[in-house]
Design a protein around this nucleic acid. Structure first.
Lengths: 142, 142
DNA sequence: GTTTATGCAAATTCTTTGCAATACT
DNA sequence: AGTATTGCAAAGAATTTGCATAAAC
């Protein structure tokens, strides 16, 4: 993802495009998996974790990223690609491998469309499948 | 839930029915929501958290409880009611209220049946809906 | 008597906040 | 000047481990 479009993305969500924030978005866009705070800390050594945390919090408020429970205690973050700025329509399921502890996006599996009884307001749906990924499955058997 | 059936449940899963474990299962059975370690610590003051933790870990290994991400950092636990001892067939969705931070069971909403491509082994599906519960929704509007 | 379970203390990990310094408008 | 952003340090919360004692088989 290019700097130009990252700046545009940030501004579209009302976030000032500082150098740090651009780095964080770039890392999120580059990773094929949702990234945890720890991943980002390691990836971008130049930024303090408190700042990464505050950036992610802001991004989340502005619906620029959403949070994914990683099945392993920590929270992971991924960019929203939805057209709609205020909802999280593009939500897909995730797969957590219990052996290698990686989280994959199942882009072609949408989270179910949940309609709850009168009175509930739904803001997001998180769907995490746990199991063993193909790579780890092979290793085990051989 | 009576002590007899708790003992039977534990033994069915190959877990020795100690006094502490019976207390923990009883608490899990009594709560209408999935309980966090913290909930259990408060509920059962007599047992140390490390022991609660070890009991829950064991129960999880034996498919006697399953873990639910509570949307708020901690993990919550609930008894499996499935007939099948080794899978988590009875899984239903959960609802996390972003205002009161309570987690509810949506017993009538099953998690979707996920069939993944060749190579994946699925062991469980976690589905968490976040939003505002009826009680909090009412308070806000009035 | 050997294995299993427990309590206590302490280490880890992940997240969050306070505050002073810096950068931006 | 005045607001927003940042780094550093430290607090908090949730989880996990080490080890010595106690209980169960």
């Amino acid at each position: 993802m290019e700097d130009n479009s990252i700046v545009a993305l940030l501004e579209r969500h009302g976030v000032r495009p500082t150098a740090n924030r651009i780095l964080i978005v770039k890392a999120l866009a580059a990773g094929r998996h949702p990234l945890s705070m720890r991943d980002l800390e390691i990836e971008i050594q130049s930024i303090d974790k408190s700042n990464i945390f505050r950036a992610l919090t802001l991004f989340r408020e502005r619906h620029m990223v959403h949070a994914v429970e990683d099945g392993d205690g920590a929270t992971r973050y991924e960019l929203c690609w939805s057209e709609d700025e205020d909802s999280d329509e593009d939500e897909h399921m995730h797969f957590f491998c219990e052996v290698c502890h990686r989280t994959f996006c199942l882009y072609d599996r949408h989270v179910p469309d949940v309609s709850l009884p009168e009175g509930y307001r739904v803001s997001s749906v998180n769907c995490l499948v746990k199991g063993v990924c193909p790579a780890c499955g092979r290793k085990r058997k051989c």
